[in-house]
Design a protein around this nucleic acid. Structure first.
Lengths: 227, 227
DNA sequence: CGACCACTTGATGACCGTCAAAGAGTGTGG
DNA sequence: CCACACTCTTTGACGGTCATCAAGTGGTCG
């Protein structure tokens, strides 16, 4: 999991040939799609990893829980992203649909059988795992050493790069963002308000969760506020 | 980097055949060793990744810096660990010898040439990257959601598993531990004192940085304090 | 339209960071 | 070998950032 392949990704990695592995091996690969309603679980932590997933529509959050309910979201998976891949045997996160979400499935078994003999596929998997690693490593710096405004700014920059449209319609709630950034939802809200007052962004329209970035340069600067 | 292969690792992964890749490919692999003095840099972030390293003696820290000096240590590499591997092109961390350290080097170029044709090696690299990923993912939960005592307990449990001797002689300073855990050195010191008063551990002998775990069960419980 | 959920904003407090001082350990040079 | 300098560590006092608790507004959907 943690595959964030839309970000700075080479197209062929982003799609893993759109799961068209059959073309390489000649094996019959069953392509399935499942639609999940808002809030439903795709798989749970420690469950055997039977499938790999690609988001066709919607958005997914993957997270770990502590026994008292504290939650750390590891990644958001948007349209095009592949996740559940780096989990060898058992899943290391729980995955949930944030909104109504359609996923493409591929049997892990199939993928592994192909990878056993096909070095190109194995290298592609390695490349995806490395990309994955980069994101988590950067996120570690954020969680360990950045203050609340820097964290929220980093989140916005990341989302801005990924959705790449004038107005960001974020699927996730303030609580999701907070659990991604290691904050509380109130702190996220305050940071957003602060940035709005500073003219970095604005909330758009009648609907919630629509944000427009007004000043990308200053937003990026806010990610590394303290000089 | 971030290769923490001594922990729960299968021996063949830990050593990658002790870098004896020549035996697979028949290629001439130059094996070099370099010794670094305490505090010296092995490589810097964003430098081209020319080599992969294995710790033969000593200990290494890998970290990222923010412009104002805030530091996040990603991993400590102890004897046997391989690091600098997941950095494709450029290193994503800076690596420094914590104490006098001897490293084995292998040219990345050689490794990649072998991996291009040898699927077994590629799979091994993938396996190491995945192991790597697991550690970072767990660390993300720690940095995002655990309090100071839980963090220090987690650190001690991790080190206890890796050094596996009665008395832990830690190579790193309180500041290193703090920068690994996203805390300050004072907070680390207070957490250790608190655990000592609670009878979980003790400081040993005249020399600093020697810790003995008195109650592993309660130490593990402290890692998930709040129930 | 009403119930519910998401969000914002304020008040308060706790945890941890900062600043400071002193003790302990280490290394070096006379 | 001891003295001195330096680093590392501990502990205390204080303050700030963010978590917690709470209330009210706004949006969504049956």
């Amino acid at each position: 999991m943690f595959l964030r392949t839309t970000r700075n990704s080479k197209p062929h990695i982003n799609t893993l040939d759109d799961f068209g592995i059959a073309s390489h091996s000649g094996a019959a690969v069953s392509l399935n799609e499942i639609t999940y309603r808002k809030g439903t679980e795709v798989y749970g932590e420690k469950e055997p990893a039977e499938y790999v997933y690609q988001v066709k529509k919607g958005a997914v959050r993957t997270y770990k829980l502590l026994s008292d309910g504290r939650r750390q979201i590891g990644a958001f998976h948007l349209v095009g992203d592949i996740f559940g891949l780096a989990d060898d045997d058992a899943h290391r996160f729980t995955a949930e649909a944030i909104i109504e979400t359609t996923l493409r499935l591929i049997k892990r078994q199939t993928l592994e059988t192909v990878a056993e003999t096909n070095n190109l596929i194995t290298r592609e998997l390695l490349s995806m795992a490395t990309l994955n690693l980069k994101h988590v490593e950067d996120h570690m710096l954020l969680l360990g050493r950045k203050d609340s405004v820097e964290r929220v700014a980093a989140f916005l920059v990341e989302m801005d790069e990924r959705v790449a449209s004038q107005v960001m319609a974020l699927p996730m709630t303030r609580r999701d963002i907070a659990d991604y950034l290691g904050l509380t939802l109130e702190t996220v809200s305050r940071a957003l308000s602060k940035m709005r007052r500073a003219g970095l962004l604005d909330f758009v329209g009648s609907t919630q969760r629509k944000i427009i970035i007004l000043d990308r340069a200053r937003l990026r600067a806010a990610e590394f506020q303290r000089q």
